[in-house]
Amino acid sequence: MSVLDWFSKQKESNAGRRAGRLDIPGDLWVKCPSCAAVLYKKDLEENHKVCQNCGHHFRLTFEERLSLTADAGSFREFAAELSAVDFLDFEDTKTYKKRLEENQRKTGRRDAFVCGEAAIHGYPAVLGIMDFSFLGGSMGSVLGEKFVRAAERALEKKLPLVVFTASGGARMQEGLASLMQMAKTAAAVARLQDSALPYIVALTDPTTGGTTASFAMLGDIHLAEKGALIAFAGPRVIEQTIRQKLPKGFQSAEFLEEHGFVDAVLDRQEIKNHLAKILKHFVQPAEQR
């Protein structure tokens, strides 16, 4: 599966060559993986991690995405207490327990998905954000449970559900239980579909594997961030299967739009406005409620 891509990228990052991360070539300067321009890190961050030269979108952490999406101070997180357990005593080159601890320390969060109620230009919504920097945004039991609680919260409060995806796929260290999160989240979306509440997915780089093949592809409306990789099978897996190089732009946000799976491909800075424009059709802004 496409987690493969993530793990091999982790390897590269250890060698200090990973694209999409800011902390590699020195503290002050970053090389854009797309156009090779050397960017001043502070400028890049001020530009929401979009390359000023070519428009390449670097990956965001949960905090960065939240601050770009929710109105300042509006986010009320729920289900924050949930964390994963190593119920299989899974050990590869490391124990799952160790991996969890490391990622929790690195990100300061318990797992790869954060959800809460928020306002987007005043429009209330339940907002869920996946964080690729936590174990490759892999979907385990915590993610599945929190997604379902977010959907249930939307139903209970009669709010739209907005989810930002970023995931390498299923969390192998939870075995078949991780696969079942696909069924669990898809079933929760079905309940939303039976209501009149909108479910909006914003696909960001990368969204692959079991995440794509479940709640990420079931939105009423699909937005995608420019240049994002959106796939079922990761590029490496496909190349190994068909034994040829993939065409440029294959499985990009633009490619998915062209093939009918995405409603709009947007610049990072446009997403919030676009979300508000959509939400306007369904809910009143907070001050008018």
Binding site: A183, A187, T212, A213, M217, L218, A233, I242, L246
Partner: peptide
């Protein structure tokens, strides 16, 4: 995991089945 499968929405097809089978 093939070219055509990705183009025609392998992920969407599976996701849709999960959703529809659940109800």
């Amino acid at each position: 995991p093939g070219l055509g499968a990705e183009e025609r929405g392998q992920a969407e097809a599976i996701a849709r089945n999960l959703q529809e089978m659940s109800r």
